[in-house]
Design a protein around this nucleic acid. Sequence first.
RNA 1: GCGGCCAUAGCUCAGGUGGUAGAGCGCCAGGUUGUGGUCUUGGAUGUCGCGGGUUCGAGUCCCGUUGGUCGCCCCA
Length: 416
Amino acid sequence: MANIKLQPPRGTRDLIGEEFRRHHHVIETARRIAALYGFEEWATPIFEDTRVFARGLGETSDVVSKEMYVFQDRGGESVTLRPENTAGVCRALVSGGLTQSLPRKVFYAGPMFRYERPQAGRYRQFHQIGAEILGAAEPLADAEVIACGHHIIRELGLDEGVVLEVNTLGDAPSRDAYRAALIAHFSANRDKLSEDSQRRLEKNPLRIIDSKEAQDRALVADAPTIETFLTDAARAHWDALRRHLDGFKLPWRENPRIVRGLDYYSHTAFEFVTDRLGAQGTVMGGGRYDGLVEEMGGPPTPSVGWAAGVERLSMLLERGGLTPAAPRLVTVIPVGEAEEGAALALLQSLRAAGVAAEMGYRGNLKRRMERANKQGARAALILGEAEVSRGVAQLRDLDAGTQAEVPLAEVAARLG
RNA sequence: GCGGCCAUAGCUCAGGUGGUAGAGCGCCAGGUUGUGGUCUUGGAUGUCGCGGGUUCGAGUCCCGUUGGUCGCCCCA
C-alpha cells in the first residue's frame, strides 16, 4: 500500500451507511410528495456555460463573485459547476422551447458546488432538492410551492423544529424606493454601523436589515420597513399570498428581515428555519423570480420556487433520532459444500418472491451465524444434509431465537 | 476571503512540569463433533496528520503546512 493517505477533497464527504440512508430518505420523500403536487422531475447538467450563473444570479452576488467553481474546458469554453439549480432549470426551459406550454411545475434533486469554507451544514459539494413553478404570476403559485415544501418537511417528521417565515421584497419600483430610503437612513448614522454593514451600505443595503451585529440592531430597529414603499400591485400580491397561506392551513410568521442573497428575487421571499443547526439555520429557502427566464433569453416568465439543503435536513433527521433503519435480510446458510447447490436454489427462489436475501461466501456454520447476526439479519435458513434430503430448511428467527423446520416450498411465504 | 479550537490504533479517547506509546469498543483465532446475540482465553494493528526547528532526547515545546471542527461573510 502506498503511504499516502487519500481523503475526500475538502468540503466533500462520502455518504455511507446511516448517512446515505438519511440522505436518500430525504430525496425519496421529497420526490414522492412533489409528485402529489403535480411536479415533474427534471435533471439538468451539473455544469453549465458560466454565463448561465453569472447573468442569472447577479455578477456581484457572493455566489458568483467568490464561490463558483469556474474552469476552462479543453475547448476553451468557460464552464461552471452549478452552485444552484434554478438558473439551470430556467435555461433548460428556454433551450427546450418549453415556454410554449406554461405553467410548468418542476422538481429536481442533485449535487451543487460552492467553493467556500466548510462548516456545520455547509459543504463544497452539497445536495439540494428544489421545486419551481414556471410561468405563473399568481400569488397562489407562491403559496402552493410553499405548501409543497412544508408538506415535505412535515412528512420527514421535522415540522416541530422548523418554522416558516415569509416576507415580501416588493417589485422593482417598490424595492428601488425602499433601497433609497434605507440608504438615506443608514447613511445618516454611517459611523455607528458595523464594519460589515458599512460595506453593505455600498453593495446591498437590504442586507443591513439582516445583520447579526448588536450595534446594527439598534439602527435597524427604527429603520423604515418595506411596507410603506410597496406599490399597489406589490401590496396586492403580498396580501393575496398571506391569504392563500392561510387557505392552505400553513403555520407561518412574517419576518421582515428575510433578504435573499441572489439578485433574481422579487415579491415573495421565504425561509424554513431551525435553531437546531448552529449557524446554518435555513433549511429551505426561496422566493419569486420574475426576471430570470428573460435573462436566459426567454419570454417574460414569472416564476417562484425554493431549494432545500439535503445535508441540513439530513442532520435534523439524525438529531431527531429519525435515521431510517437499514434493511434486514434473510441469510441462507448451507452447512457444508454439499448443500451449496440447494442453498443457491433457495436463495434465488426467495429473491424471486421479493424477499431480500443473501448468502455468505465462506466460513462454517458458526461463522456464518455470527456474521448474519452482526449484519442484523432477521432470519437464517439453515440447510444441512438431513434438511436437503427431506426438502426442508431450518428457519431460525434471529430476534426471538426460535427455530422451526419448514418445507422449502413454503419458506418464501413464511418470510413474506 | 477572515478568526477560535483540534489532529495518538478501524472507532471513541487516556497519555501532570519533554525520556523512544495505552484503554474500551471493534477485528482475528480458540473454548473439539451442524447454530448467532451473553461469557471466556489468546492475538494482530500505530513512521503519535505532514514538514521543519529547539533539545543529549519530543506524542508532549516552537514555526509552517494539510485536514477537521466551530464561528464571520454569505448561503441550502
